[in-house]
Amino acid sequence: MNRILKILVLLPAVLFLVTGLRWLVAPTGVASNFGLTLDQGVGLSSQVGDMSAFFLTLSSCLLIALISGRRSWYYPAIMLLSLTAIGRIVAWLVHDAALALDLIAPEIIVSIILLIAARRLADEA
């Protein structure tokens, strides 16, 4: 069971790592996945900087959690993902954004997996 759980954590960790790297090296290809069109100047700087930092932090936390066996590393990732999902729903409710279920659903599902991992995977340190 724990082995399956670790794989379920590893998969999004790799996906987030790849997404973060794409934001750094080829943002044009990845921006459209988030409904974004790339800006210029400071706008582009913020898009690349913030988005790559978000995904690389996410993947780093998860990989550190898996490698170090310290469950506390799951929590930053859980917070990042769940707050992102909440923010998306608030954007829909308050700011007339689209309800991006295609993005919200994976964020919630991965958050739940990480919550389970944080509870079930014992500290190995």
Binding site: R71, S72, Y75, I78, M79, S82, L83, I86, I89, V90, W92, L93, V94, L99, A118, D123
Partner: peptide
């Protein structure tokens, strides 16, 4: 959005407030 928007918003904001406390509690317990 029209029928349940307010209720969803209140729920999410509550979640938003409680989440850091929950994480802090879990980490302290660990």
């Amino acid at each position: 959005h029209k029928k349940s928007g307010e209720q969803i918003l209140i729920f999410l904001l509550t979640l938003l407030l409680l989440l850091p406390f929950y994480v802090a509690y879990r980490m302290k317990k660990d």
